[in-house]
Every structure is written in C-alpha cells, then in structure tokens.
Design a protein around this nucleic acid. Structure first.
Lengths: 266, 266
DNA sequence: CAGTGGTCTAGACCACATG
DNA sequence: ATGTGGTCTAGACCACTGG
C-alpha cells in the first residue's frame, strides 16, 4: 500500500471531506506543538524523512509546511544539520531618549557595529528633499550593520551633508560613532524631525547581509534628524528583520489622519 | 534529450559554475521584467506550463520562483485563470491630524467599513494596563475591517471601557462611527497617547479576512487614545498588509533611544 | 469542454556538517 | 561514511474558471 493509497483512504474515510490540504494540516500540527512548548525553543525537529513517516506524506509536502513556518521565523534550517525551533527573536523597543548603544549594553546585551562602507556621492532627489540640501550637493553615505548579541539586527544607511562634516573620516574612525562626529563639529544634541515606518521585503543584498532568506519581510524606517537650530544633519534609511523591533511613539498628539500617498512596491 | 540533460549541459557549459539555483534565476528574471515594466502591472504572465518551456525546468521549479514573488506581493495567482502582476498596492500615510475616512475619500478613494463583531468582555491584562482600567472590568470590543477601493486593507479591534459608553450600540449602529459614539458621550476631541508599530505574521483568521495567504507578513499597530482630560478611552489593535501603509511620525522630539523589551513571537 | 493553478508522489543528485 | 537539508524531475489528480 503506497502513501498515496493511505492518503486516499484517509480522506475517503472522512467521507471525502478533505477541507484543507495536507501541508496545511502539518503546518498547524507543528505550529501548535511549537506554541505549546511541546517543541521547545531551540530544540531540533525530527528530520524531514522522519516527519514524512509521521505524517505519511512525501518530503515535498513536509517541506511545504516547514517552509511556511520558516517564513514566519518559527523555524530555522541548517543545511547538513537539521531544522530547529527558532528562539523567540529578541525584540527591541525604539523610543525617544538616549543613544542606541547605551541602552542595549545596559540590559546586558552586546552590540557590535560594522561599518560596511563610507562613500561620498551626489545626493539623490529623495534624500535632497528630506535633508533640504541643494540638488547635486554631496553627502557622506555611511552604511552600517548592527549586531545585537551577534545577531545581525539592523542594517542602516545614513546620509550626512558633506559640507557640514569636513572632519568626518578622522573622527568617525576612532570609535565608529556618528555622535562623536556631531560633537566634534559643534553639535551637542539633535532631535528627530520625522520618522516613517513601512514594511517591505529584503533585496538579495539586504538578505545576504542580515542572514535572511531571499525576499524576507522587513520593517523599514526612514528618519530625518536636525540640530538645535533646525539644520537637517542626517537622513537615515534602515531595515530590521520583521519581528526584531517594536517602534514606540509616545503621545500626546492630535487626532489620527490617513491620506493617500502612492505605492511603495519596487 | 531530457530537460535534465539540458540543464546539466547548461551548468557544464559554464564550467560547472552553477552559483545560484535555477528557481532563483527564474525569480530574478521575472522580477526584473516586472520592475522594468516589461511585464506591466495587471498583466497576465504566461501559464506555468509555458514558463516551464521558456526556462527549461519543471513546474515545481517555476512554482518555487512564482511563490517567492507572490510572497513579496508582486504577483497574485487566481486558480483556474492565471498569474498576474499585482498592481502596486496603494500605500497610505498615517499621520496625526483628521479622521480616517475623510482623507481617503478626499483623494477619490472609496472606503467601506465592515463591522465584524461587537462583543462585551472582561478586559485582558494587557489591555487593562494600556487603558488603565481595573482588572476584571468590562470593555466593548469592536472588530472592524476597512476596505479601501474594495481591497481589504485594515483589520482593527478597538477596546473601549464599557462604563464610559452606555449608549454605544444605538449610536454606533447609525453610521458605524466610533467618533459619533465619543461625541454622543461628550468627547468632542481626543488625542493619541501612544502608538506602537511592530511586524508580524497573519494568523489563519487574519489571513482569511484580509484575503492574504496563510502566514503573510503584516504591519501591526497598537495604540491608546485619551480624551482631553487624560482619560483613556480606546485601545486599538490593528494590522495591515505589509506594504499597504506608511506610518509617519512628525518631530521634533528628543534623541533616539533603544532598549530591550522581549520577544513578540507567538 | 480545455486550460489554469493547487497539491502531491516517488524518486534523484547535490552540498554540507558531523562523527 | 552517514545523515541532513536544498534542489529538481516527470509525472499525476484535483478544483476552479472560462468560453
């Protein structure tokens, strides 16, 4: 009796009521076992072959279910090793207040900053509008990756008007600190002018850098900072794995409004 | 000569350098054709069988690429019909200001509000803390679906302290307007106390209601509103398809801070 | 009815990690 | 050397849509 025959028997035994596909039933079964801690965080699942036997399906069907769970971040697969229940990804609150690094380390977490590139380029139209700098002027573009507890967590590209920070390289090289650069150029404090939050999907490059599968969902933040005089000093474009962060915006503010904007796709 | 032989010839001809999988090459090819408007928005793709011939692979391989593009919202498949390039999903800015509906319709878009359920229940711990109501007190939970241009776009569950709005049902029934309920109970204006934005994945129920695949990525917003006296009148929990909305938070405010919070998974 | 996408089978070969 | 997950084949049956 083949697996196919078994499957047909199953559904036939139900009076032909196969209301859901087999991979979805496997998805639900595994999902509930993970959520109920029957499959604890960090534990290894049975191999795909064993799961095939358990659910009486072929590997492709098991993998269809596993794939869905991986996309939701509940499972991670390591080639040659196995499939594991992913530890609940740490989630960080971002609010107004102090600096990035201080509060991470205060909670006993480690923060590593990798500077991936520093390039000077002519400002693009979108950045020019946000920074209120003339078209064609130059910006310093700093691309950095933040690893929290050795997990790539935040990929970020800051653009700073080059004219404002002539000593950027020398100061930044010391501690990889943009705040240091600000202070060195007479900016003791600054404030967030605007923050925009959207969702999106990882480009192949972003996926590679963040260690995510191709097309993984992301949270994107775009923000503008200005100094105490209202001069815009930074335009920042960042992305996080979808469940790695929570943005907290305290009120009070006015009533809620919604208005048409235009697509973000592409 | 079988398809398999052709494929082997291809990679062998490259000096054995098959650095990427076949489905990923198909993914890239289709993706670039969509982005370059070679496959215009709304147009129908060749059938899977035709794509198999074009790329010299089997259906499962084509489908692996199509699946990735569907997860990113670039394609939608209609059973029995075909696969289509998805129209760039409308993206709405949410900022502080006026009411939800007014600004949609002002842009010529249609808004439909479906009230899915109105139930009274004892407040849960999380909601009680946000609303600052006693544990065990009662809330009115209103679950609503907003369709913009007939697309399910925003699924929302508001919780209101039941004691504050004794006339809720009668007033709400008239126009499905929570603002009407507020006004009827003497609340002329209110303000956003806090907004939290996270990413997540659709439950099966959310996916069904929003017309998304199981486990589709979402943007989630949780917010608390209070009236002019500081009384918290609403705790709202909503979700949007990942690319359907952009949240805009205007400054100025203090410097940025990040602090540890805890997982959101599950 | 023919054509479409959704699901599934029963294999296979590969790269990778571990003992 | 063995077992793992990643990929792929060459079929098949089904439900659904449309002419």
């Amino acid at each position: 009796m083949s697996l196919d025959d078994i499957a047909k028997t199953e559904t036939a035994g139900n009076g032909g009521a196969a209301d859901t596909s087999r991979w979805l039933r496997i998805y639900r079964a595994l999902r509930s076992e993970i959520l109920s801690d029957d499959l604890p965080s960090g534990s290894q699942l049975p191999s795909e072959k064993q799961l095939c036997e358990r659910f009486a399906v072929t590997r492709m069907t098991v993998r269809r279910a596993l794939q869905a769970l991986q996309q939701e971040g509940m499972l991670t697969a390591r080639k040659g090793v196995g499939v594991f229940v992913r530890r609940a990804p740490p989630c960080y609150q971002i609010t107004d207040g102090n600096r990035f690094v201080d509060n991470i380390t205060a909670d006993g977490d480690t923060v590593e900053t990798q500077t991936l590139s520093i390039i000077r380029e002519r400002v693009l139209a979108a950045s020019a509008a946000s920074l209120k700098v003339p078209r064609g002027s130059r910006v310093i573009a700093v691309t950095r990756l933040r690893l929290i507890n050795n997990e790539p967590t935040f990929l970020n590209c800051k653009q700073l008007p080059a004219a404002l920070f002539p000593q950027f390289d020398a100061v930044y090289a010391r501690r990889q600190s943009v705040d240091d650069v600000y202070r060195h150029h007479g900016i003791e404090s600054y404030r967030r002018r605007e923050t925009r939050i959207t969702g999106g999907f990882a480009t192949e490059e972003e996926a590679r850098i963040l260690g995510l599968p191709v097309g993984a969902p992301l949270l994107r933040s775009r923000s503008v900072n200005e100094d105490d005089t209202g001069t815009r000093i930074e335009y920042s474009n960042g992305c996080w794995p979808l469940t790695a962060v929570e943005f907290v915006f305290p009120g009070p503010s006015e009533n809620l409004q919604i208005s048409r904007h235009g697509g973000v796709q592409g």
